[in-house]
Design a protein around this nucleic acid. Structure first.
Lengths: 187, 187, 187, 187
DNA sequence: TATGAATGAGGCTTCATTCAT
DNA sequence: TATGAATGAAGCCTCATTCAT
């Protein structure tokens, strides 16, 4: 792994464990196996490092969400594919899941960073909803509302499962949870 | 207002605005209109202050959620009353809503504090679900799953609305959003 | 006991246990069973309190040293009486003994306070030596030297005994120790 | 001089002048010519720094006491050599002498530190006494008692001289003072 | 007269950042 | 390019002292 990735990874590990407010650069350097000064070759300031980490986390999530996603498939299929990818990724990467939650909720992540991060997914997510509405299979509420509804439900559920993995059988759970969401938004 | 409340309020204000990692005790004192030392008559450490603030926020939310809640009413009514209260409180108190989100996601809030905080609501929330299941009006998934589903959806939606209040007409929105959730969990 | 004495006693207790550098006025007040403000009715500042405590400790020691002291007795008798009193007091009051040691060695006790404290004893102590020299039973070294020799030996021994009381049988020890000193200074 | 020594030296200077209770780390840094944070690369806490200083002072004293000390020489010679070294060191280093006195008497120096400090000298000091007792030239009292007697007398005398250097001619004094002690303990 | 809550200066310590090597 | 010792501003907390009650 290249050094920049090392540093991002180290930062992720430490923030996930101790929180943004307890993550000194010296600890990041130790965890990354490099000198403190080296970090500043790759990131201008600590703030910069944190913003970059957030973007990286969202980038990873995004690419997983779009795996095997076929924009030409039917609405329900796209819905299940996309949000299934989303949920699976969150379950497979509990640390990044918690990290995204923590960072999204914290004013330390700048408004601009948040927007930049979410831009890419928005089109896909909204597209599923608006296509569904045109076909009258999805409720006629603002697309943002329905997307947020699904996102909130699934991200909270995945976090819950990560904390208490014994709640439901692995195999069944995903389909059942997606069905909860689908039942919620379907016309 | 008594001094302890003043300090909690000042802390809430500052954490909401700048984040947990950027909330020095000196700023809390200034905002609370007291000397720095005074804080320590009411809270042993900064950590203690933060835990207490979290508990206080949850306490306020809890008491609002239970307003006009009739444990003897029918399941759907109880569902709409309770989660309606929840949503209305989150919308009416955007700052506390964001604060709860931020603090819940941050390792700085201790495990024990989180448990202590959620204890009171759990019984009510789970009760609605299990009663609904006995009457076969709610899906047969673990009660934790369904509660988390509703909680995640509504809390995320309320946060979204707080950020962009223009999404939906005030009057309609609540019922429509609760219906999304109800449709999701109903059998 | 009157309040002033209470406060001095409390201060003595705390300094003896934790040291001058770890003796907050709030702790003194608690130990003395009074409010923090009350201390300032009896002592202008903390520094004043500390100086007064030192003077009080020396005053107590002085009065014990002069008990049954007969200025008309022979030199050796006066020597044994005076230094015997001194040693017995130090052994009977380990806390004050340690306290005197601690405070005497610390620059926090002002030069003036030290002089004021030692003034009273000096005459007696030196008198024993100079009388002994006139009678040719004591070595012809400066009286300060011989006094300091005896004082240093006995105060250090008493402190040692206080720390490890099992070193010598109570009955014998005193006479033996005084003899060590007397043998040292006798002509 | 290396930085660690600089810091110890600065601390010694300030404690000697103002006392343990008036020696802020900021002043130590200024005196040592370094930043406040630098001190913490060499000492974990202020307490640690103080313990280390005490150990260092005792180490210096110890090495001086053993200079030209011949364990095979006769008892009286060893006595005069060892305690002569001790006294000379105390006179030549008034600041360290006062410092040792102050720190030894203060609860801020931990029990464990004191033991660690005194361990090395004990064997030599006690050896002189016990050998003297086997040869019937020294009184038959516990070796700790006699050692403490000598130590107390000489350390107090050296301190006194340091404060008032005019008491005795330099040349004569040492032998005369050691004789006082020797006369005290000899059989 | 006695209290103890309030104050804020000042103490200890951490940590983002720099820079000589 | 990489390092990590050094820096000092800033954070947390203590405590001598005051003052309203």
């Amino acid at each position: 792994m290249d050094k920049r990735q090392c540093i991002l990874e180290a930062t992720a590990e430490l923030i996930a464990e101790h929180g943004l407010q307890a993550c000194p650069m010296s600890a990041v350097a130790r965890q990354a196996g490099c000198g403190a000064g080296t970090i500043y070759r790759y990131f201008e300031t600590k703030d910069d490092l944190v913003q970059e980490l957030y973007l990286e986390l969202v980038r990873r999530l995004t690419s997983h969400c779009l795996e095997a996603y076929d924009a030409a498939a039917c609405v329900k299929l796209r819905f299940f594919q996309f949000w299934g990818n989303f949920y699976r990724y969150m379950r497979a990467n509990p640390r990044d899941c918690a990290l995204l939650e923590q960072m999204s909720a914290c004013p330390a992540i700048h408004e601009g960073t948040m927007e930049q991060a979410s831009a890419e997914l928005h089109d896909v997510v909204y597209g599923i909803i608006t296509d569904g509405q045109q076909q009258h299979v999805v409720k006629m509420l603002p697309e943002k509302v329905l997307s947020t509804f699904v996102y909130g439900a699934l991200s909270t559920l995945s976090k819950k499962y990560n904390a208490e993995p014994a709640l439901l059988g692995e195999e069944l759970e995903l389909d059942q949870l997606l069905t909860l969401c689908w039942d919620g938004i379907k016309a």
